[in-house]
Write a protein that binds this DNA or RNA. Sequence first.
DNA 1: GCTGACGGTGAGCAAGCGCTTAGGGGTGGA
DNA 2: TCCACCCCTAAGCGCTTGCTCACCGTCAGC
Lengths: 214, 214
Amino acid sequence: MSTAEETGGEDMPWGEVSPDAARRLLIAAVEAFAERGYHATTTRDIAGRAGMSPAALYIHYKTKEELLHRISTIGHTKALTILESAADGPGSAADRLAEAVRSFVVWHAGQATTARVVQYELDALGEEHRAEVVLLRRRCDAAVRRILSDGVEAGEFQVPDVSGTTLAVLSLCIDVARWFNVDGRWTPDEVGAMYADLVLRMVGAGTGAPSPQK
Amino acid sequence: MSTAEETGGEDMPWGEVSPDAARRLLIAAVEAFAERGYHATTTRDIAGRAGMSPAALYIHYKTKEELLHRISTIGHTKALTILESAADGPGSAADRLAEAVRSFVVWHAGQATTARVVQYELDALGEEHRAEVVLLRRRCDAAVRRILSDGVEAGEFQVPDVSGTTLAVLSLCIDVARWFNVDGRWTPDEVGAMYADLVLRMVGAGTGAPSPQK
DNA sequence: GCTGACGGTGAGCAAGCGCTTAGGGGTGGA
DNA sequence: TCCACCCCTAAGCGCTTGCTCACCGTCAGC
């Protein structure tokens, strides 16, 4: 249903943003926010990375916060799509949980720059924009919870606390964006596979045999 | 060996800082940094929370960054103490892993304000100060890795990748500081117990019977 | 009562911030 | 050739930032 390109390392992560100048600014903002954080990033820095003067930014975006809002909305929508397509996909609850964790983690590792901004700069959004994004996050939570509930009902999972475990699974995946290093020892796919295995064990549906390893 | 007071909700978290005015400023800085982030916090805000004029801050600290450095060093030392005392404690590898996770999580939840600064404002430190702190973090990693290696060697754990699992365990615990809500549905002790159980399952040493639940 | 050390304040500096505005230069249609 | 249009820039405004400095009240020792 979903290929590796669609879930993880995308060909064109910001293809939906046009015109070209607006996209270049947005990509520059993602890099700058991820490196230094929203508050430590200046509009001059963003414009400079995009090869423009500081004033050019305000032709395409009303404020610096609007840039963060666009990034956050697009990123959260992507994350939600990944989780919901896994939750609604084929297979047993264990299959769907493994796929959800795998593809979610591959995205957080492969697009760690974006994911870092999406996951850790939420508080920099204005009141209303944050409220919008929180709604998307709740739907992410619901998707994972649905898989876990299905698994418990089907007797596939042994989970004492579905809410707590949902939180823990999402937390584990999200934190990948914080520590993942592009030049490190693992590829996004490797981390995705390892985490899917760890999560299956957490819910008591671990692979009976030791998991395939290199 | 260690009581709840020593590992989690401390009586006097910043008792080692003196004189009194310096401690008040430091506590004010922790609150402000945790709420808004380092870069979005002004020195005027910190001084105001401590009931002083902006200039008073510079009698006790050379720069705003020195405040963060003090907080980060004290916090990381505390975290390291928790993990090492669990790693060197009595009992089987499973016992020690459970205790490490439990007390580490209780601290991240009970002292979430401090932990948030300690874990998520690392990049705001200057070059040299960050290098110091990174050394402490490596020792945290080593303590957990030691428990896992012991467990694998003793045949208690089934872990395909000790390095990766060490990272995942620490990651899971650290991220508690991000989502834990003091007014939420769980107490620090409850999260600690739940997480210890989840981690034991992750390493293949889960409680055979469904874990005790209310 | 005088002195010196200590811990504090009010005012303010230079620099950097987000953002605005007047204007310029290249391109396509008539 | 001319003009309208769109993008973009140079300059800079008003404000906030981290931090400094001249000064002041309090209190112990003599």
